[in-house]
């Protein structure tokens, strides 16, 4: 009798284990994925209520770009100081701005839309260190150290002059919802068509004339 009970309970255990595995296998196709980072709202808030199982589903953790530090401390122009900032990367399909940058203690309403000054061999736009797609770090936040340059630069695609941020250090924080005050790039008064790109060179193999060699 005891043997029968033991075998039954053992069989039940094995059955339960197997059925559990089967069920979990259906529910969680990607068990290796880590849980969703706390504090991040679901993509669609309504989804959470209708599908509780989705809470257990976790997307793959985004790959963060590496921390970047300039090889030398920056030497800003007189009257300008290197400070701590927070930046929110916001990809702009129409222009060449990088994202919103504010001082650490300021609200996002005080953020400025900036162009990032990149230094080949130094601090560059983090997307270059990911998969080379400009959208790779869209809606990522960064702790920044640097300063606002005292000049602006011209974006020929939108016919605008934009503020410049010079980074000394860029430390990724991770994905974050866009600030409500700045849900995306700013509105562009003008969008010049793609054909307004500057001079085209159709022959990539063109060589310098002898006189210039």
């Amino acid at each position: 009798m005891i043997r029968v009970c033991r075998s039954l309970s053992l069989g039940g255990l094995v059955f339960s284990f197997l059925s559990l595995c089967q069920v979990r296998g259906e529910e969680l196709p990607s068990q290796a994925a880590p849980p969703l980072a706390p504090g991040l709202p679901p993509a669609n808030p309504n989804d959470g209520a209708t599908a509780p199982a989705a809470e257990a589903v976790s997307p793959a953790q985004p790959v963060l770009p590496p921390l970047q530090q300039a090889p030398e401390p920056l030497a800003p122009p007189p009257g300008v100081q290197v400070e701590e900032f927070v930046g929110h990367r916001s990809y702009d399909k129409d222009g060449s701005g990088w994202g919103w940058v504010k001082r650490s203690n300021d609200p996002w309403s005080a953020a400025r839309w900036v162009v990032l000054e990149e230094t080949p061999g130094g601090v560059v736009a983090p997307w270059r260190l990911l998969n080379k797609k400009r959208t790779a770090d869209n809606d990522f936040e960064y702790r920044l150290r640097g300063y606002f340059a005292p000049f602006s630069v011209y974006d020929p695609h939108t016919d605008e002059f934009l503020a410049v941020f010079v980074p000394e250090r860029m430390e990724p924080i991770g994905p974050a919802a866009a600030p409500p005050e700045h849900p995306g790039p700013p509105f562009h008064r003008v969008r010049l068509p793609d054909s307004t790109s500057p001079v085209s060179v159709t022959d990539p193999n063109i060589q310098a004339p002898d006189a210039l060699r």
Partner: peptide
């Protein structure tokens, strides 16, 4: 153009 800043101009 794309000298100091990607797709942008500083001296214009």
């Amino acid at each position: 153009y794309s000298t100091y800043f990607d797709n942008m101009s500083k001296g214009c």
